[in-house]
Amino acid sequence: MRNSIILKGLVAAAAAVVPLLCHAESNVQTGANTAAPGATAHVDFQITIPKILYLRVGTGSSYTTGVLSSVGTVDLVSFAPTAAQVGNGTAVAGTGGDQTNGVETAAVVSNSGNVTLNATATGALGDGAGDSIAYTQITTTATTLTSATALPAPTLANGASANVVITAPPTKVIIQDAKWTYAYANTTTPPAGTYGGVNVNNGRVVYTATMP
C-alpha cells in the first residue's frame, strides 16, 4: 500500500509537468456536420528527381540494372593490318573493347530532354615520328544492344566531331544503348609505325554528352 501511494504521487507529478504537446493539423465536426464530408485533412506529397546524365563508352557500370556510377577504365581498341592488307581498301576489324573484337558498349541514360553527343580527338593519330593517320580512317558502326533503337555514334574526326542529337520522347527520359563496332578503313598506305596508343600520340578520343 505504501508503494502504491508513492507511485500515484509520481504519476501526479509527471502529469503536472507534461506540456501541451498536442498541436496538430485537425478538423472537427459536430452534430449534423459529421455527415459527408465530415472531418477532413490534407497531406502534400513532394518527390524531387534530380537531373541525371549517364554516358558509357566501353567498360562501365551496369546501367541496365540501375547502376549509374562512374568507372574510370579507358579501353584500348587496336588495329593491326597485315603487310598484305595495308591500303587495300578492305576494312580491318579491331581488337580490344569491353565486348572484345573492337566492340564497345555505348549507352546514354538521361531524364531532361534531348541529349547532344560528340567526340573530340586532339588531332590525327601520330606515330611519334611525324607521320599521321586521320581519324576519318576509323569508322564506328552502331547496332542495337538492349534498346529498340541503337544509340547513334559520332563520326570521328581530327578534332571535334559533328554533334549527334538524341531526341527525347515526351517523357524526357532517354535510355538508349548500342554496340559500337570500330574498324580501320584501310584506304591509304601510311608509313610503317604504331599510331596513337594509350593516351599518347593523340590516341584518346573523348566522348561528351550534354543536355539542357
Binding site: 493539423e25 472537427v28 465536426q29 472531418a39 485533412a41
Partner: peptide
C-alpha cells in the same frame, strides 16, 4: 463528433 488529425495543427 468526428475529429481527424493528420500531422501538425
Amino acid at each position: 463528433t468526428v475529429y481527424l488529425q493528420v500531422g501538425v495543427g
